[in-house]
């Protein structure tokens, strides 16, 4: 029983990692109707910026918020320079541009900071927390809490602020939005900025666990996609829950299902993506997208 609980808890912790990046994916999808494959690499890049500041002696929380701000700017700039020119191109072109961004961020990070992994500090205490027989890292708890805070912010932003509503409108129906006075391009730019900012938070929460290196987000992004697909690309809450379900499921399956074992854990994530897309494309909590053609 202990092992079961320990695996569940450790799965929730890992799921928190997936959830944090999945939130950024949902953000960009909500705001621009595009899936950004470079989201993870942009987060990694921002984390390197944070690392450089910390190395220069800037205190942690100053660095944290400065990085979020920088990432926001980076997102705006990327949208303006790289995405805007292909804004009205077919969706496939935009997807390929984001794949290009993925490779570029990865290579530039390796070029500037080298590929050697670097330790990244956690703002939370290093002593693990004991709950009966279960042991949880303090950072894991902190990381999940931060993810939940981001989730609340995101939810409130889209639900209660006029900008959030305008953004959703701009993403789903650019033409009508423009007619009703929403500056669509500016909304898309804002969406990229915010998604990059959320990504930066995810990066800084993930790096202490997996250590900072240019490929740190590679595997995580696949799981984050599984999480967002499972929960629904249109539902921030769903994405977080999706992340945790994926994390717990892969641990339990790896531990208890003999023929899958630890060797096919990644396959579980990919299988989740495919099954969800086949059975319920909008995800558990997503809204069905209806389009008039």
């Amino acid at each position: 029983m202990d092992i079961f609980l320990q695996q569940v808890v450790s799965g929730i912790a890992t799921g928190g990692i997936y959830a944090s990046l999945a939130l950024a994916l949902v953000m960009i999808y909500q705001a621009t109707d595009v899936v950004n494959f470079a989201q993870g690499e942009m987060a990694m890049f921002s984390t390197y910026l944070a690392w450089s500041m910390l190395n220069a002696g800037v205190p942690y929380w100053v660095t944290f918020f400065a990085t979020v701000a920088l990432a926001f700017l980076l997102g705006l700039v990327i949208e303006r320079l790289v995405i805007r020119p292909v804004e009205s191109a077919p969706i496939l072109s935009i997807v390929i541009v984001t794949l290009g961004l993925l490779v570029i961020h990865n290579s530039i990070a390796g070029w500037i900071w080298s590929y050697i992994q670097k330790p990244f500090p956690s703002p939370f205490p290093s002593r693990p927390v004991h709950m009966g027989p279960i042991i949880v890292g303090a950072h894991d708890i902190g990381e999940i809490s931060v993810t939940l805070i981001v989730l609340l912010l995101l939810f409130a932003f889209f639900r209660y602020t006029p900008v959030g509503l305008a953004m959703r409108a701009a993403a789903h129906n650019p033409v009508s939005s423009r007619l009703s006075g929403i500056r669509v391009s500016r909304m898309l730019m804002l969406g990229w900025g915010l998604a990059a900012a959320f990504g930066a938070v995810a990066g800084m929460m993930v790096a202490p666990i997996v250590t900072l290196e240019p490929n740190m987000m590679g595997g995580i992004q696949i799981y984050a996609f599984a999480a967002a697909t499972l929960g629904g690309f249109t539902s921030p809450g769903g994405a977080v829950l999706g992340g945790i379900i994926v994390g717990v499921a892969e641990n339990l399956v790896g531990t208890y299902v003999r023929f899958i074992g630890t060797e096919l854990k990644l396959t579980v994530a990919l299988a989740i993506i495919i099954i969800v897309l086949l059975v319920r494309p909008r995800g558990l909590f997503g809204r069905a997208v209806v389009r008039r053609v």
Binding site: D2, I3, Q6, Q7, S10, G11, A13, T14, I17, Y18, V206, I209, V210, G218, G219, I220, I222, Y223, E250, N251, G254, T255, G261, T262, E263, K265, L266
Partner: peptide, 20 residues
Amino acid sequence: EQTYEVTDPTIDSQIVNLKN
């Protein structure tokens, strides 16, 4: 014996099993 793939984000689950 436990294995991992290079693409795995973490190996926490394997360590828990090994300890157990």
